[in-house]
Nucleic acid binder design. Structure first.
Lengths: 336, 336
DNA sequence: TGTGTTAATGTTAGCGCTAACATTGCGTAT
DNA sequence: ATACGCAATGTTAGCGCTAACATTAACACA
């Protein structure tokens, strides 16, 4: 990526044109060109036409880096997700970027990979690009991450959860209540041996807590918790480690589907309704695939894209309600 | 997002500290602070310690916008994908960002939503942030997009395909051959009435072309093509529109799974091996879900993350082979 | 006739940093 | 002692743009 362009080639050096170059060509000063770009109404129509012509001829591409430094507006937002690959957070990124891009904002994307140290590094990296807001999944894992964000003096949106003491704004839902809702449903269905499978990130843990509390409060034996790594294939074998279980809440749909694939192999899955399932399974996320699976997956439906769009709105509007609960709904299909 | 911070509040104004502020506090000039950040070996250990202390005390966060303008290195790459939500391209973004982030590069993400005009706008928006490279899925749809990229004088990587006349670098596979491979397999299996379902983006179309050519060359009747919108649910009903078909190539796994869900409803799916399926189904992408489905989905496996990592490598190294064919493999499971 | 008023354009300074070139001080060879 | 090399630090200019404040000309109004 070194710049070994021979400069002594021709008279028209391959130097990208600047505002002044356009201005010179159009016979105006650089500020007028700048105005054509940002506030065209301030420029006389003929002048504007001449400038636009010059921009076209030179193939001018504005330099937003310089513009950002001069105006201290970068028109960018930093987005931090644990992971983007086959994850539910992709919907959120899509949602927020659909909202932000038409407004001229760029999305700077970073992944923490569920690693606190990397999260801090990414947060610092994002902030050094001076985004006008940060949208992240969850909350900073470390004190350092918190400090960084609190000192940044820009809107911060935490998503996919409802932290008790948010840094600034929130767009999420109550993961604890989701766990409670699933437990209630499973108990009402008459299930007795419940278990929870999935990751151990903060949000999954909150779900587990709600699940546990509700089950124990109802007098049933304590549910088991199986912590699985992040790919669904691992959950295929999970059933062997959960003998006697008759209902499972999976921290997300991928785990739920993997678990069901394992149940099928074990002959513990039927194509009938939930009441006929030897083992009930409830997921979270409402992946399209869950609907296509047979038996169709019952799940906690969460609107990932709405979370993203709401987060985008929260970065743009200061003031107003800064804590939005997008809720969730228990969608009952055939798996549990 | 206006900055109405009352400046006459205290003596310690809430102005983010600059390099010079740190320098002043540490008793050195700003350039020394800059060196501590970029080339610490040039600074005496005690000085460095003093500077680092000052940075910590002030909570200094470097301003890469200014740094980029001064050095004309932004340490960022622009990434353009059709869509990021529940798509196979998320793997590619993950792969390239895993490679790029540790090197200090940020990813600026944009989505074209399969829309040529939006693609051009996003390309222009990306370029105006002066990324050091552009990685995109496919090739620019318009002449204007091509022109923009050719004039940008930075590495451009086109992915997920092997364009005949690439702008610069390529990391992808031969979509035409993928179609041929699927056709060959299906024909060898004795299937007679073949069809293709999926989108009509350039890559899907290339797959269709290979599929069609191979089938017609073998003397079988022309395959049918059903163009579906981008969500898998639409493909559930696709079977009704393809009576008599005994083999289907879906442009991606999501469509394949949706189609299979439809087959199941119609009683045209069994849990046995491929030879027993009334209708063979082959997907593309090798989604984890496909493996969990029953019957397990046969598919063209493509390594989306390897495409991303390769693309990242191609942006970093000029010279060397600039056209990398990552290939694909036909993974046969139970669906066809 | 002078005095606003407004529309259109220009001038100046500087955003926060880094490249490129000084400068300083000190140890060492001659 | 003089020159030289080198390590550590500093000075200067400028990246490409925009905010804030001129300036100019044309015209309306009393």
């Amino acid at each position: 990526m070194s710049s070994e362009v021979p400069k002594t080639e021709t008279s028209t050096a391959p130097v990208p044109p600047t505002l002044s170059a356009v201005g010179k060509r159009a016979g105006v000063s650089s500020i007028t060109v700048s105005r054509v770009l940002r506030v065209p109404d301030l420029v006389a129509p003929e002048t504007r036409a001449r400038v636009e012509e010059a921009m076209r001829e030179l193939g001018y591409v504005p330099n937003l880096v310089a513009g950002a430094l001069a105006s201290s507006r970068t028109n960018s937002v930093g987005v931090l997700v644990p992971t983007i690959a086959n994850s539910i957070f992709a919907d959120t990124v899509q949602g927020l970027s659909d909202k932000l891009e038409p407004l001229g904002f760029s999305v700077i994307l970073a992944q923490s990979r569920y690693d606190a140290a990397r999260e801090d590094r990414m947060l610092a990296a994002l902030l050094s690009r001076r985004p006008e807001a940060i949208i992240m999944v969850g909350s900073p894992a470390t004190e350092e991450g918190n400090r960084l964000l609190r000192h940044a003096r820009i809107p911060i949106v935490e998503t996919w959860d409802l932290p008790a003491a948010p840094i600034d704004a929130v767009a999420g839902f109550d993961n604890y209540k989701a766990g409670v809702a699933v437990a209630k449903h499973l108990i009402a269905q008459g299930r007795k041996q419940l278990a929870f499978i999935g990751g151990d990130d903060p949000r999954a843990t909150r779900r587990w807590l709600g699940f546990w509390d509700e089950i124990v409060a109802s007098g049933l034996p304590e549910p088991r918790r199986l912590i699985l790594d992040r790919n669904a294939s691992g959950s295929v074998a999970a059933h062997a480690r959960l003998p006697d279980v008759d209902a499972v809440f999976a921290a997300n749909d991928a785990h739920a589907i993997g678990f069901m694939a394992g149940l099928r192999k074990a002959g513990l899955l039927c194509d009938g309704p939930a009441s006929q399932q030897p083992v009930a399974v409830i997921g979270l996320g409402d992946l399209e695939m869950g609907r296509l699976f047979s038996p169709a997956l019952s799940t906690i439906s969460v609107h990932g894209d709405a979370i993203g769009r709401t987060a985008a709105t929260l970065t743009l509007e200061r003031g107003g309600e800064r804590k939005v609960d997008l809720g969730f709904e228990l969608v009952l299909r055939d798996s549990g």
